[in-house]
Design a protein around this nucleic acid. Structure first.
Lengths: 110, 110
DNA sequence: TTGCAGTAGTGGGTTACGCAAAGTACCTTG
DNA sequence: CAAGGTACTTTGCGTAACCCACTACTGCAA
């Protein structure tokens, strides 16, 4: 249902600017997705490539080996636009259920 | 990371009033969790029982077989209170990443 | 008795995430 | 030029969640 939010995040980041997988991990970690590791991102990227939502091309590394830079495709942007409302929808549904809790709880402490 | 939101929803509903598993499915479906099925809820409930977050007692069914009514335990309420901020946190992190998209996208077509 | 609606439960398949480890290419230093 | 460090890539395994399909049982109505 809502697993795959990482896909969404990766597409979002890529829609800003092309990045290589290693950079994606750094970007996500900088955004408080601390536990995100290479073992999570690389298979995810492979999946996105297979679905042709991102394309990959090699660039000579500035200080290191060549980098496989990932660029979001038109299809990827389209998928992103499709997924955005899905996420917002899930978010709303969950929030609505959770609101029932706080409403029924007396706001005693805190 | 955020799979398991259903657990959160179930706990939230149970915190309002005790319900049997069958009723949980109905409650969730009424809240637009359309694809939620018995095969999803029953194992989930079993898990919650094993963790002692909910307790179960049998009640004579009004129109049908006896119902196994689920009640949230104190431990369950505590877990719920712990999980709530986690969800809100994930929600915020994701939203922040996704905001980068809409910000960088020019609002041309719809 | 048959049939149907309400209720309970299980098993399998798919997929995603996290961990850990390893392998490769480039640069720097000695 | 050799050694080591760093940037980068890749893979495999384990765990767990969700969905689907199926079975089975109870009670009531026709």
């Amino acid at each position: 249902m809502l697993k795959g939010v990482l896909d969404l995040c990766v597409l979002a980041i890529l829609s800003n600017k092309p990045t290589h997988a290693y950079g994606l991990v750094e970007a996500l970690r900088a955004r408080d997705f601390d536990q995100t590791s290479y073992g999570t991102i690389y298979p995810l990227v492979t999946r996105l490539k297979r679905l042709e939502l991102v394309s990959q091309h090699s660039e000579p590394g500035e200080n290191g080996p060549a980098r496989n830079v990932l660029t979001i495709t038109a299809e990827g942007r389209s998928a992103l636009q499709d997924l955005l409302p899905v996420w917002r929808d899930v978010q709303q549904r969950v929030s609505r259920v959770l609101d029932e809790v706080t409403t029924s709880e007396e706001p005693s402490h805190v």
